[in-house]
Design a protein around this nucleic acid. Structure first.
Lengths: 133, 133
DNA sequence: TCGACACTTTACGTTAACGTAAACTTCATT
DNA sequence: AATGAAGTTTACGTTAACGTAAAGTGTCGA
């Protein structure tokens, strides 16, 4: 029996509100067990939450992430059709990630040239200061 | 004089609606010139639109992108304070991109293992088919 | 000159992802 | 027994990023 977590433990660990965590459950992304009314989160739930937040940082909607979760769950007991659908989805997601890698590379280049430009402007200002004295 | 673009040209090139492009203008991200009422977009406007969409794919809000644009514009005639603020912002954005690179790498690993798992399940199904015949 | 088509403004509607307030219940301490 | 901390449900509010409908303008080819 691996350890469990309370809602506020997870909330503070990942720096989200308890409201958000409950909302994710409401949307079918998490399924914690209960002791009475109180939610109890397993290590698997924790991993799922981590995946949700990672997806968010990459601009995935909750619905998209849910789709992936559902597909994955179905895959465990999957028919051939399910499995092939999963493979197709994986390919699609991979393409999206490639696109994002490209985007990031471009933005990094832009940041580089922006920084250079800034530094040049700064040294130019320093020059003016010097001549003014 | 480099070439100009109509709103629908840009819309179809980047696969967005004209509504979106006008909305970006409304939010202060684009400033096309006019010929009468009609908007005329320059190459610079086109680049800006490209940057907006790239930002979106990376999960930037329009407000964030606008901040960057504004900072950049101010930088051109920038005081020392402005320039240092710009450099700080650049550093922050760089950190965000690093985080996203990490996220993407993690997700790629997960996709890899997911694919492996799928393929294993598929060959297993094939085995069953064979023995059933 | 007459459509037809691309463009325009105005303005209300919509969806996602929560925030926030209200009004409880449980449980551990004092 | 009472207080306080952490949890719960219910439900209405909010913001971002457009969608969409309505009604008008401009201009070009037949």
């Amino acid at each position: 029996m691996s350890r469990t977590y309370s809602i506020s433990e997870l909330a503070s660990e990942f720096d989200v509100t308890t409201r958000s965590i409950r909302f994710y459950e409401d949307q079918g992304l998490l399924h914690p067990t209960r002791r009475g009314q109180t939610r109890i989160y397993s290590s698997k739930d924790r991993v799922r939450l981590k995946l949700i937040l990672r997806g968010k940082r990459l601009g995935f909607s909750l619905a998209e992430t849910k789709e992936l979760f559902d597909l994955w769950d179905e895959t465990l007991s999957g028919s051939e059709k399910q499995l092939n659908l999963m493979l197709k989805t994986i390919t699609t997601k991979r393409a999206e990630l490639e696109q994002q890698l490209n985007d990031i590379a471009m933005v990094q280049l832009e940041l580089d040239s922006a920084e250079t430009r800034c530094r040049e402007a700064l040294t130019e200002l320093q020059q003016k200061k010097m001549t003014a004295e």
